[in-house]
Nucleic acid binder design. Structure first.
Lengths: 147, 147
DNA sequence: TTATGTGCAAATTTTTTGCAGATGG
DNA sequence: CCATCTGCAAAAAATTTGCACATAA
């Protein structure tokens, strides 16, 4: 059951000359639906009920393609897990708690000065968005005060 | 052939009640020797000639132990590779080029303000050192100007 | 002596790949 | 039609684990 109007990402895929398959649409939908980051396996779990024959390989291949097309990006979390997210303008950084796993958003304006500084000092174009910032959240810090 | 004076890391291990084995010393040496980050496999390659029977499992287990003891830490690189480095005071952040792999050091003072900002705004204790900062280095940026 | 650590081989987990058949444009 | 995609099954790469033997203290 194909949606009447394609998402912006899907349109963009086609504009770039890639074929628009049902699998790709479904995977794009899954990535668009998350508020934050999603793993390959999460996508698989989410997609499987609706489209049982969708294959893990296809998810890997599709994400790689979407990344090339500039539509999604991936990051590595504290434990090394690879997670995917929408790319582009609105891409916000995330703070992820190492202890409880809670994700919260970080305004880009907070990170931007560091990128600028690194650019000025070292001529290095830092890709700060590539990693979620890990650490310990407020709640867990409090719990930890008296261990 | 055991060195006459043990490294600080080795001493610290023993102080914490862990046993000091030849394997652990060798692995510690390998981590101390690098200026930057080192992968499990790099360690293996480096250690193997001198101590052929040293096992990969032991390296994994030792690094985990050393991390618990607060003597080393690990980071995830752009491609997801896990790399290890000395922990502690002098721990400097690294800039790693996504294109050519070049590593350069980043003064902690450059990063510190971001950690402070995140702490103040969100009460979140960011572990910024956990990841190498990836991006594109000056040399590669120049090459890329006319692709 | 004995709790701890190691080697080895096998199991897991995650990701990649070759290929024959399916399908979008 | 036919270049591109996909499913499948198998391979590769990275990491973990169980267990018998070795060893630091």
């Amino acid at each position: 059951v194909r949606p009447v109007s394609l998402s912006k990402l899907s349109e963009s895929l086609r504009e770039q000359g890639y074929r628009l398959t049902l699998q790709r649409e479904i995977i794009i939908e899954a990535v668009e639906a998350v508020h934050g980051h999603i793993s390959v396996d999460d996508i698989y779990q989410q997609v499987h009920p609706r489209f049982p024959q969708v294959n893990l390989s296809t998810i890997y291949r599709t994400l790689e393609l979407l990344e090339q097309a500039g539509l999604v990006g991936h990051s590595h979390f504290h434990d090394g897990a690879t997670k995917w997210h929408r790319a582009g303008e609105g891409h916000h950084q995330h703070l992820v708690c190492e202890r409880c796993g809670a994700e919260s958003e970080l305004e880009l304006s907070v990170v931007a000065p560091l990128a600028t500084e690194i650019r000025e000092r070292y001529g290095f174009a830092a890709n700060l968005g590539h990693f979620a910032i890990t650490g310990v959240c407020q709640a867990c810090l409090k719990k930890g005060e008296r261990p």
